[in-house]
Design a protein around this nucleic acid. Structure first.
Lengths: 254, 254
DNA sequence: AAAGGCGTTCGGCAATGTCGAACCGATCTG
DNA sequence: CAGATCGGTTCGACATTGCCGAACGCCTTT
C-alpha cells in the first residue's frame, strides 16, 4: 500500500475509533453494530475489543455481551486534569469568581469543534447541581464558545452550518454569528442570552498564554433575572469575569 | 512465536501502557524515558505516540517535545460516567444523604486495587472544595475501601503488604485490618477514624446488585468534631449512610 | 423447527508494524 | 567555542503480527 506522510498505527487508530463510538451515546454497542459502523469485519473488531477489555478501557456486559466504556478511562480523564496547566492555575480564580458573583463559574477550551469544560464551580449555597467537567458545550451557543471562536487563529472552519438551535434565540445564521463574534473581539468579552437554555444567560472572557494566544475562556452562568436588568447584562458581573480572566492571564505569564 | 491463550493486540496494549505511565505522575514524559520504562525501541514508541497524538489521547509539548495526556481522555472519562448505571441510579440518593448529614457524600467502586470515586457531593454551604470524581482512594485507609474489601468475593489478594501509612492511625498491619473487616461484615458498615487524614472521619455502607453482590459503597466524610462524640461515631450518621445504601440497593433491584 | 441474530473462534496469508541504525537540533561541558 | 551527549525524529528491510472471512454455538424470534 502507498505510504501516506504521517504514518499511524492502524490498530491503535481503530481502537480509538471504537472508544469514540462508545462515548458518542449512552447505549452499549455490540460487535456487529461496531462492525457495521466502522465497515470492518467482526473478527477484527473482536480482537481489538478483547484487548481494550483487558486493559480496562472497555467493559463487557455479562448478560448481553455488549460493550461499554470502562472505569480506567475515568481515572485517565481525571489524571488529565492534574496535568492540565491552565486548569491548575485557574482553580483559585474560578473559586473567587464564583464567590464574588454568587453564580456558577466555568472554564473551557476549544477541542474538536466543541467547548470542553475543564473546570466548574457550583453556585454558592446550591449544592444540588451536577458537575459538568469533561462535557461539551456548543461553540456558537455558549459565552465560552463565542470567546474561543472569536479569538481562534484557525478561523471559522469549525463552525460549519447548519448550526443547531437550542432555543428560539440561538444564533443559527452564520452571518449573525460572525457579527456577534466581531463584537466580542472589539469589546473583549462575550455574552449569551438564553441561547442555550431558556431563562439562563452567561458571560465569558478570554484567557491568554504568554504569547498572547487565547488558550481558554472563563465565565459565569446564571438565571436571567439575577444577571440582567431591563434586558441588558449588569456590567458589574462583566467586570468580575474580565477581572478573573486577566488575573489568570497574568498568572500564566509568570 | 508461541500463541498465548487470550491473544491481545500488541500495539493496542502498548498504547494503553503508555497512557497508564503518563497518568501515573504529573510529569510529562519523553520518548526516551518511555522507551526505558517499557523496554522498547524508541522508534516503536514514537509510532504509537504519533497515533495517540493524532486521536487526541496524548498531547505533545511544543517547547520540549515531551508528551502528556490529551483532552479527549477527559471527555471519554465523563462519558463513562453517563453510562455507569450505579452512578446514575445513586446520584439522587447521594444528594439526599449529603443534605441530611450536612457532610460531603461519596460513592466508590473497587478498581485495580483502589477505590475509584465515581460520585462526590460537596458538603452543603461549603463550595470551595475540589471535586474528587475519578481519583483513587486507598482501600485499607478509607471507609469506602473497607466496605469494598470486606465484601470482595476475590478475597484479600488486593491488599498486598506493606500497607502505606497516611497518619499514625492508619491500619498497616494486615491482621489488624482483617479484624476490622470482619467487624465490617458483622455490622454491615465501615468506619475510618483519622486513618487517611488527621481530623477527618468517614462512614460507609455496601451497595448490592440484584444478586446480592457488592458493586459499590456509599458514605460520608467530615470533621471528627462533628461526626463523633466522646471518641465514638454518632450513630445517627451511621443510620443516614445505611439508609442511603439500602435505598440504592433497592433501586438497583427494580 | 427453521431462520436469523448475536458474540466468538480459528488458521492462512500478506499487509502491517516493529526494529535498529542513522539523523539533526538543542543543551551541556571541558 | 568545539566536542560530546542527550533529546525527538525519520527511514527502509524484514518477518512477525494481526487482519480477514468463513464457520461455530448459542440465543431469541417466527
Amino acid at each position: 500500500m502507498v505510504a501516506a506522510v504521517g504514518e499511524t498505527i492502524q490498530s491503535v487508530e481503530r481502537a480509538a475509533a471504537i472508544l469514540r463510538l462508545l462515548a458518542s451515546g449512552p447505549r452499549q454497542l455490540g460487535v456487529a453494530e461496531l462492525a457495521r459502523a466502522l465497515g470492518l469485519p467482526k473478527g477484527t473488531l473482536h480482537g481489538i475489543l478483547r484487548t481494550l477489555v483487558r486493559v480496562g478501557f472497555v467493559e463487557q456486559d455479562a448478560a448481553t455481551g455488549k460493550y461499554r466504556l470502562g472505569a480506567t478511562l475515568l481515572h485517565l480523564g481525571s489524571s488529565y486534569l492534574d496535568v492540565n496547566e491552565l486548569r491548575t492555575r485557574s482553580i483559585n480564580w474560578a473559586d473567587a469568581l464564583a464567590g464574588r458573583s454568587r453564580e456558577s463559574a466555568w472554564i473551557g477550551t476549544l477541542h474538536e469543534g466543541h467547548v470542553l469544560v475543564i473546570h466548574h464551580v457550583f453556585r454558592p449555597d446550591d449544592s444540588m447541581q451536577t458537575l459538568q467537567v469533561g462535557t461539551y458545550l456548543p461553540t456558537h451557543a455558549s459565552a465560552l464558545g463565542k470567546v474561543l471562536l472569536a479569538y481562534d487563529p484557525y478561523g471559522e472552519s469549525l463552525t460549519a452550518p447548519p448550526l443547531p438551535a437550542y432555543t428560539d434565540r440561538t444564533l443559527v445564521d452564520t452571518a449573525k454569528l460572525e457579527e456577534d463574534l466581531e463584537q466580542v473581539r472589539t469589546r473583549g468579552w462575550a455574552a449569551e442570552m438564553e441561547e442555550l437554555t431558556e431563562g439562563e444567560v452567561a458571560i465569558a472572557a478570554p484567557i491568554k498564554d504568554p504569547r498572547g494566544l487565547v488558550v481558554g475562556a472563563i465565565g459565569i452562568r446564571g438565571a436571567v433575572e439575577r444577571l440582567t436588568a431591563d434586558g441588558a447584562l449588569t456590567m458589574e458581573y462583566v467586570s468580575y469575569v474580565r477581572d478573573a480572566a486577566r488575573a489568570i492571564t497574568r498568572d500564566l505569564a509568570r
